[in-house]
Nucleic acid binder design. Structure first.
Length: 840
RNA sequence: GCGAGCGUGGCGGAAUGGUAGACGCACUGGACUUAAAAUCCAGAGUCCGAUAAGGACGUGGGGGUUCAAGUCCCCCCGCUCGUACCA
């Protein structure tokens, strides 16, 4: 009987399904375990990134089940988003139709992978049954003052008459129209994440099972900084400019003032100053991406206004409008100290402004480090920390400034000028203004009869949808046509999985039982936004008393990307891996035979064609082989390289496993370990025990590749063992069964099939994880390296825990040691069970 | 630009400060076969040496701490991710 993946995989998937093995139910007799992988956007078909993510999650789910946990392992669809609209325009279809048909396809593909989901909890976020709850949440936020409207700047495509996402802006131009993108001011809805910044920051310290790098990134994103606000009075005017600085100690080095183009003062100036107006227009054309702002050239406009330096009598500083000053951070105005800030330095050089050094240093300017202050009056001789304190004190005394804490994090703009998202439940009335939709009128559903041939947002151009009556005065009114950012849906979906209650977003009992998610797994690209928004969302829901939980994810693991070698023809055309053949270490096009250049190993991407379709892999090798390779290659948090030889190696191993287990003869008398174990038996069982320990530890630590290596080692020991008698058979059978339980979470179909072939009645899916049994530890001999000056010269085999004196004595009997030990050692370092080192 | 991470044989990767390269892939030799594939057995970091014994070198580069550094510290280089309207 040959290993036939399609046959056994279908069979066991059906059995799991028919017997409802993975259905999750509240059970207070068992500890619960909620394992969740980031749900996918239904883009069309699954890719290797999904395969990796869901294989990792499924391994954990099956492992925890075997350990006796009551496991919740759900799956759903992050179904709103831009690609559906693009597809709708391109293929003349509806976003809903496109999305739901993609879900169909992808669900089938996931099912073929044999993932142990409770499919009864599946949902798509684009269904009103889901999004109606977030309309209610938004209303709660609105009433609690967490949601508010303010002006925001968006990318505007004047030809398409539409707002563009950052990714739709290519080199400053609209991706479809190709015309220069403008910045446009619009009103949009925001959530006050900044109100929760302090708590979001503090609680990071308690996220013990999150990767440090994610925590550091979130801390930096929140960006708490202590500094000072300080007022400069504008000469010949009653007005003042309030600036924020983290370095009030450098005040004596200030040589100019710069304000954001969006600053109130900039707008006032531009009203009577055409050149200023032009400059603001120019700034509007610039990208509003953080990268471009920081990397781009610094431009300024000299307003002609000056302020007087508050601490240097008679010194005036020019006010510039500058493109690198952000309105969203601090007060939208800074003082420039070119000697000690890179951006200020660049700006000062460009506009020939004075550069005054106020911190002693030997480096070239700008110098941003610590040091003793000079040219700074009462700050002279102080270091940075001291000078910051003293300068703030002085500013307070003068009544022109004070210590201020600011955060880099900006409020979350949740408005999107798009059709395929959750409608925002607000109505605009001529007389009543903005009015929240009463809860009994929810959900506000998206219209299906839309026309993507018209310009702009189909919700705006729809003939009737936005027309409604004001809930307050019943006069004619308009609906909000913005929809939510899709991060809105993904900020609470994990809690919705705990119960699909049709009338409430969450059922108290289920929420309390299952939440928080014990193990969350997903791409590292979500390190900040999705994960921070979700943390915020829980707090916001707690604030409006919907739930009582702050942190949604107890343990987090981030996975790396799946990469593949790239191939190009000599004419620089990308090729798919299956268009390339290898002969004598050289690559050729499989049809045309032309030379192919093998490029770098890069993240799989459609544009570079270095993709492998999981569907094809599963068809050729089966899901188990794909899963096994995913786990055996790299540790999950690192990038992995997909390769044909790698997948074939996994395929070979599963075949070997299949043939080996099926070659075992099963008799009743073999089902128990023999009473008297030989030395070889003991060694084998000790090896088994080591593997159980190692696999358990490796899975707990998310080092699945080590777990795989360890299982392979055990398999090598079992399959090379010469079976001579009945006792041998019993020991091998015993060990093989344990091996199957260990490997089951990785390759569940073949494990079930072999388990059945071993005459077992229960499914391996419900077997208990093997426990560690140290009684077989027989190895009391240990190998210890002997070094001379830290260089390995010999290895001695000794009793475990042998004392220092004996270790030294035995080491000195080694020929190679004597050879190198040509004089008396200055020092001998001996650590029992570890090392002997002679220093000469 | 800023923030974060990563860098070990031909390749993926192992390694509580203590034998660098576990496990696998690719490779080489052998067995089986009319032959190939598959499978099985054996070998292998590089260099010197005889294909041995043994030795030198070796974890992106440079410096440092230590009896001992892939691991800790400093500087540099390269690549990847995020950067707020992609998900």
């Amino acid at each position: 009987m040959k290993y036939n993946p399609p046959l056994i995989e279908k069979k066991w998937q059906k059995k799991w399904n028919d017997l409802n093995i993975f259905k999750a139910k509240i059970d207070y007799n068992k500890p619960k375990y909620y394992v969740l992988e980031m749900f996918p956007y239904p883009s069309g078909s699954i890719h290797m990134g999904h395969v990796r993510n869901y294989t990792l999650g499924d391994l954990i789910a099956r492992y925890k089940r075997a350990q006796g946990f009551n496991v919740l392992h759900p799956m759903g669809w992050d179904a709103f988003g831009l690609p559906a609209e693009n597809a709708a325009i391109e293929n003349k279809t509806l976003p809903s139709k496109w999305t739901y048909s993609n879900i169909q396809v992808m669900k089938n593909q996931l099912k073929q992978m044999g993932l142990s989901y409770d499919w009864e909890r599946e949902f798509a976020t684009c269904s009103p049954d889901y999004y109606k709850f977030e309309q209610k949440m938004f209303l709660d936020f609105y009433k609690a003052g967490i949601a508010y409207k303010k002006e925001t700047v968006v990318n505007w495509d004047p030809v398409e008459q539409t707002v563009l996402a950052n990714e739709q802006v290519v080199d400053g131009r609209g991706w479809r129209s190709g015309v220069e993108v403008e910045k446009k001011k619009m009103k949009g809805w925001f959530l006050k994440i900044s109100d929760f910044a302090e708590d979001l920051l503090n609680e990071i310290d308690n996220l013990n099972e999150w990767p440090d790098r994610v925590k550091v990134m979130q801390r930096n994103w929140i960006g708490k900084s202590r500094g000072a606000t300080l007022n400069f009075s504008i000469n010949n005017s009653k007005d003042i400019i309030k600036i924020f600085t983290t370095r009030p100690d450098t005040i004596f080095g200030a040589t100019f003032i710069a304000i954001s183009p969006e600053h109130q003062l900039s707008l006032e100036i531009s009203e009577n100053d055409n050149k200023a107006k032009e400059f603001l227009k120019f700034c509007e054309k610039q990208s509003n991406k953080e990268v471009d702002l920081e990397k781009g050239d610094k431009f300024g406009y000299e307003t002609g206004l000056t302020v007087s330096h508050p601490l240097k009598k008679g010194v005036n500083l020019k006010i510039y409008i500058a493109n690198f000053v952000l309105m969203d951070y601090g007060t939208g105005a800074i003082f420039g100290c070119p000697a000690h800030d890179q951006r200020d330095y660049d700006f000062a050089k460009k506009y020939s402004l004075e550069i005054i050094s106020v911190i002693e240093n030997d480096d070239i300017l700008p110098y941003t480090g610590d040091g003793l202050h000079i040219n700074s009056d009462f700050l002279d001789g102080l270091n940075t920390q001291q000078a910051i304190g003293v300068s703030i004190q002085e500013l307070r005394k003068l009544g022109i400034g004070k210590e201020t804490i600011t955060y880099r994090i900006r409020d979350w703009g949740v408005s999107r000028q798009r059709y395929w998202g959750c409608p925002i439940p607000i109505v605009f009335c001529q007389s009543c203004g903005e009015v929240p939709v009463p809860e009994n009128q929810l959900p506000i559903c998206l219209p299906e009869d839309i026309n993507f041939n018209l310009k702009g947002n189909p919700l705006v151009s729809h003939p009737t949808w936005k027309n409604t009556k004001c809930p307050k005065c019943n006069d004619n009114a308009f609906r909000e046509t913005d929809t939510f950012d899709t991060f809105f849906e993904s900020s609470w979906y994990f809690a919705r999985f705990t119960d699909l209650n049709p009338s409430k977003a969450f059922t108290n009992e289920a929420f309390k039982y299952w939440m928080p998610v014990d193990q969350y797994i997903g791409g590292v690209e979500h390190a900040v936004m999705h994960l921070l928004y979700s943390r915020f969302f829980m707090r916001a829901l707690k604030f409006v008393k919907t739930i009582d939980l702050k942190e949604p994810f107890n343990s987090l693991q981030t996975q790396g990307m799946v990469c593949h070698q790239t191939f190009k023809t000599e004419k620089e055309k990308w090729l798919f891996p299956d268009q390339v053949t290898k002969e004598n270490d050289k690559f050729f096009h499989i049809d045309t035979k032309e030379k192919v250049i093998a490029g770098r190993i890069e993240k799989m991407s459609k544009s570079k064609k270095n993709v492998v379709d999981p569907q094809q892999i599963i068809q050729t090798y089966g899901a188990d082989t794909a899963r096994f390779f995913m786990l055996s290659d790299s540790p999950p948090n690192r990038d992995m390289e997909w390769s044909i030889s790698g997948i074939e190696g996994s395929w070979r191993f599963l075949n070997k496993l299949w043939n080996f287990v099926n070659s075992l003869e099963i008799q009743e008398t073999n089902k128990k370990l023999p009473d008297n174990l030989s030395q070889l038996h003991k060694e084998l069982l000790a090896g088994l025990n080591t593997t159980i320990k190692e696999v358990t530890k490796s899975i707990d630590n998310f080092h699945f590749n080590i777990a795989v290596a360890s299982i392979r080692s055990l398999f090598n020991a079992l399959s090379s063992y010469k079976i001579l008698n009945n006792d041998d058979k019993s020991v091998i059978l015993h060990s093989t069964k344990k091996l199957l339980i260990l490997i089951n979470p990785m390759v569940p179909h073949i494990a079930e099939a072999l388990w059945e072939n071993l005459d077992e009645n229960n499914m391996i899916a419900i077997e208990n994880w093997p426990s560690v049994d140290n009684t077989f530890e027989v190895n009391n001999k240990i190998k210890i390296p002997v070094q001379i000056n830290g260089k390995m010269r010999a290895v001695i085999e000794v009793q475990k825990d042998l004392d220092k004196d004996n270790l030294e004595k035995i080491a000195l009997e080694e020929e190679n040691i004597l050879k190198f030990l040509n004089k008396a050692p200055k020092k001998v370092i001996i650590i029992p069970n570890r090392i002997v080192n002679f220093v000469i």
